[in-house]
Design a protein around this nucleic acid. Structure first.
Length: 492
RNA sequence: GGCGCUAUACCCAAGUGGUCUAAGGGAAUGGUUUGCAAAACCAUGACUCACCGGUUCGAAUCCGGUUAGCGCCUCCA
């Protein structure tokens, strides 16, 4: 059964209980990338946030229909293609492939629908036609069709902009008012174009999202998401076009994720040239570390990007995996309550926090998807587990005590897409991503470690320490465990 | 100029009227543990929530003002 959840709505500027059109079902449309370049870590935030949100809704029993588009017909794509002497369509195709690779590498679930502009031209034309028929749009002499903002009195309700306060006073072409925008752009030579009642042309920037969301989710649907920078004009114009055409309410909830900011405070953006590609980040950090970086802050807050961001997230993730590993190695088969009774208050704390963590995580995420708070509950539990693990009997008898706690930590998988692998897989991934830059291989490390093991057996401490120093100088930590030696990449 | 957002410890960050003598994480310092380490654990760390004033029995949380920064108004997740 779907559970109620509180959600902030940009449209109303307040948090309110989310109520879908159909009980138990959620239709959600999120603005995807314009594919003229590789996606950067700013795009990744949006993708991860909405991926996690849709996961959580599903986990809580909602039937989610998730649509994320590709804008593959666009001025910037054409411009980029011309620069490179490439066909726009081919260039878009290449970057869709690249985006899919990034999405997969980030562990994003594939949306239920991934429509593209180029495959929805009839739907777009129908929408434009409807607006023209109703007198809410008008063709210019060159075949460009403009939307008449004056025809939509509610214009500005999402962004709070007032038409008469808008700065743009440049009037291009046959535009009647400066705020009017192109639904359909007349083709220029060498551009991809489609036939239309107004001559060959292509869709304007905003119309595709209206057409594709309506196609898959209906004229009125539940949630529309995207980056905060899309509020105006993109989303405002979507509302104007869609509601103008259908006469019905468009998206009921608008969710906008905050932007990544640079140390200086300014946002990351392609136009500012300060971007960091997803693939560059994933070359050094596991996807879950990136996800954790995004999810440790509330989705609506600005999030600073810097050199410390990913290392810190990786350290956080390692901490959680460490606790899982320690817990999973505990044995025993007595009733949990009895063991806890015998082993003292650390055990009782684990039992108690373990029992509560699920509800606490749900409670946090139900409150406008407060991932930061949800994570804090997981960390609190991790500390309780670690504290308990120091008990001499914990390894032998603690298993039943930590069972629900492990399940509680693992709950971050289906809800947020975190902690989905085994602790050793996590360590292996970190090693695989880091060893090359350290100039090492698994074999090389393990050979050195074997020499150290031999030295230790011979109680040749100075030799053993010399090897440790050698290996640690290269960035590898050596950990002597009761049952053998382990090694890790040093994270800081 | 218009619309909007943010300001919490060295850093990230939650908290939006009393349970806050302010979660959680990273980093740091000291300790326990260890052959030595690492990891882990313990301790230390904001008498305070940008600043000023107000409302209130009570405010980080509400109101007003000031300062700083950011986003959008042109392409942008």
């Amino acid at each position: 059964m779907a559970q109620p959840i509180q959600l902030y709505n940009t449209l109303t500027r307040q948090v309110s209980p989310f109520e879908p059109i159909q009980p138990g079902k959620v239709g959600m449309y999120v603005c995807g990338p314009t594919v003229y370049d590789r996606a950067h870590v700013g795009h990744a935030r949006s993708m991860v946030v909405f991926d996690a949100f849709s996961r959580y809704l599903r986990h809580r029993g909602w039937q989610v229909d998730y649509v994320r588009n590709y804008t593959d017909v666009d001025d910037k794509i054409i411009a980029r293609a011309n620069e490179r002497g490439e066909e726009p369509v081919a260039l878009a195709e290449r970057f869709i492939d690249a985006f899919r690779q990034d999405a997969e590498a980030l562990g994003l679930a594939v949306p239920d629908h991934e429509p593209r502009v180029s495959e929805n031209i009839p739907e777009i034309l129908a929408l434009v036609q409807s607006l023209v028929d109703q007198g809410k749009a008008y063709p210019g002499s060159d075949g460009t069709v403009w939307y008449s903002v004056a025809s939509f009195p509610a214009y500005g309700k999402l962004s709070g902009q007032r038409v008469d306060e808008l700065r743009g006073d440049l009037v291009e072409g046959d535009k009647r008012a400066s705020a009017d925008f192109a639904l359909w752009k007349a083709a220029k030579p060498g551009e991809p174009s489609w036939d239309s009642p107004w001559g060959p042309g292509r869709p304007g920037w905003h119309i595709e999202c209206s057409a594709m969301s309506i196609k898959h989710l209906g004229e009125t649907f539940d949630i529309h998401g995207g980056g905060l920078d899309l509020v105006f004009p993109h989303h405002e114009n979507e509302i104007a076009q869609s509601e103008g055409a259908t006469g019905k309410a468009y998206a009921r909830w608008w969710m906008h994720n905050g932007l990544l900011t640079m140390k200086s405070g300014e946002k990351m953006g392609k136009s500012l040239g300060n971007v960091f590609d997803i693939q560059d980040a994933l070359a050094l950090y596991p996807a879950e570390a990136m996800r954790l970086y995004y999810l440790q802050a509330h989705y609506r807050s600005p999030l600073p990007w810097g050199d410390e961001a990913l290392p810190e997230a990786l350290a956080m993730l390692a901490r959680l995996y460490e606790a899982i590993e320690v817990a999973e190695q505990m044995g025993g088969d007595e009733p949990a309550a009895k063991v806890a009774q015998d082993l003292g208050k650390e055990a009782l704390t684990v039992l108690e926090l373990g029992d509560r963590v699920k509800d606490r995580i749900y409670e946090s995420l139900d409150d406008d998807f407060n991932t930061s708070k949800a994570l804090s509950h997981a960390f609190e539990l991790a500390r309780a587990i670690n504290r308990f693990s120091n008990h001499k009997k914990a390894k032998k008898r603690g298993g039943p005590v930590v069972a629900t706690a492990i399940a509680g930590l693992r709950l971050l998988g289906p809800t947020l897409g975190l902690l989905q692998g085994s602790p050793s897989d996590f360590q292996d991934e970190v090693k695989a991503k880091r060893l090359p830059s350290l100039g090492l291989t698994v074999e090389a490390v393990e050979q050195l470690l074997q020499e150290r093991v031999d030295a230790r057996e011979a109680r040749d401490w100075s030799r053993a320490d010399a090897i440790r120093q050698e290996i640690e100088a290269k960035g590898v930590l050596v950990m002597d465990r009761p049952d053998g030696v382990e090694w890790r990449i040093r994270l800081s």
